[in-house]
Simulated scan of single mutants.
Amino acid sequence: MAKILLTGGTGLVGTLLEKKLKEKNHDVYILTRSPKKENHFKWDLDTNYIDEKAFDKLDYIIHLAGAGIADKRWTNQRKKELIDSRVSSANLLYNYIQKLNIPLQGFISSSGINFYGAVTTDKIYTENDAPGNDFISKICIEWEKSANQFSSLNIPVTILRTGVVLSKNGGALQKMNTPLFLSSLGSGKQFIPWIHIEDLCEMYCKAVEDSKFTGIYNAATNDHQTNKSFTQTLGKVLKKPVTPFNVPAFVLKIIVGELAIIVLQGSKASADKIEQQFTFKYNKLEEALKEIYN
């Protein structure tokens, strides 16, 4: 049994992860701006404050906090918020761990599969490939840099470069199941690295329970789906017609601005490394979608 401090605990992944960790008899505590439950502790990035009681006999930190990438247009202010919500929060945690001399057993952080950039190629990216050179990859680069600093305190670090998370309770599928998105976007040839939320949460649990599960991993399946094939499979499972016409790229750019790049571009990511240590429960898109919707 471990004591785990979770950031982003009220989000899509965090909510299910807290439940799974408790089922495995771990003690889970949530950092939040507005503590409402007994296992909640207050933190405030604006004032660089964390309730120090959160660190008492702490074993692991799981860092999921971060403003939603696709929630708002990417204004300059929003871009700063996307980075700060991930990086400044990790830096604050690091400062407290260092100041209080907490002997963490591990720091476990989310990152994005867009570390490799928003590009469409036939290349299958592995964890050893260089990062991209655009804003979405910059977020991931800074995100991972803030997580890796814990290594300087001799704390093992695990980073999961997460693909599109499939869940019945919101996230990407909720947006895709609309008339606009239930059609191919742009060329339709861009790839969508994906992972079922159950598998993702089990990966985080493994990072707590398996001391060998450290380093950087692509958290996405080897089932490489294009936007077109993904949409067709989704329509099949939902028993809904897929619009035969592609939504032009310029339309999406008008609607959502610069962030349209994350749905108009996408490459394959290799799951070979993580599959050496983890067995996916859902590694085929159709079976994953059927579990979610049926």
Rank of each mutant, 00 (worst) to 15 (best):
residue 165 V to A: 08
residue 134 D to K: 08
residue 116 Y to I: 02
residue 121 T to C: 03
residue 186 G to H: 13
residue 159 I to M: 00
residue 175 K to D: 00
residue 98 Q to G: 15
residue 126 T to L: 03
residue 156 P to A: 01
residue 200 L to S: 07
residue 207 A to G: 00
residue 107 F to Y: 14
residue 116 Y to F: 04
residue 146 S to H: 12
residue 107 F to A: 10
residue 128 N to S: 15
residue 182 L to C: 10
residue 203 M to Y: 03
residue 195 I to F: 08
residue 105 Q to D: 11
residue 84 D to R: 13
residue 125 Y to K: 02
residue 181 F to G: 08
residue 204 Y to M: 09
residue 165 V to E: 09
residue 208 V to P: 01
residue 101 N to S: 13
residue 204 Y to L: 03
residue 125 Y to M: 13
residue 132 G to Y: 13
residue 103 P to F: 01
residue 107 F to E: 06
residue 126 T to H: 07
residue 118 A to Q: 06
residue 129 D to R: 00
residue 180 L to Q: 09
residue 90 A to I: 03
residue 175 K to F: 12
residue 102 I to T: 09
residue 143 W to E: 03
residue 203 M to P: 00
residue 114 N to S: 11
residue 108 I to T: 02
residue 101 N to A: 14
residue 134 D to E: 09
residue 172 A to S: 10
residue 161 R to V: 01
residue 92 L to K: 04
residue 179 P to A: 12
residue 148 N to M: 15
residue 152 S to G: 14
residue 155 I to F: 06
residue 163 G to V: 06
residue 133 N to R: 12
residue 205 C to H: 11
residue 104 L to S: 10
residue 105 Q to K: 12
residue 170 G to R: 14
residue 169 N to K: 15
residue 182 L to H: 15
residue 169 N to H: 05
residue 85 S to P: 02
residue 101 N to T: 12
residue 193 P to N: 04
residue 84 D to Q: 11
residue 155 I to R: 04
residue 173 L to T: 10
residue 110 S to H: 09
residue 115 F to D: 05
residue 195 I to N: 01
residue 155 I to P: 04
residue 127 E to S: 05
residue 207 A to N: 01
residue 163 G to D: 05
residue 193 P to E: 12
residue 157 V to K: 02
residue 135 F to S: 08
residue 126 T to F: 13
residue 173 L to V: 11
residue 188 G to C: 09
residue 181 F to M: 10
residue 172 A to T: 11
residue 208 V to N: 02
residue 186 G to T: 01
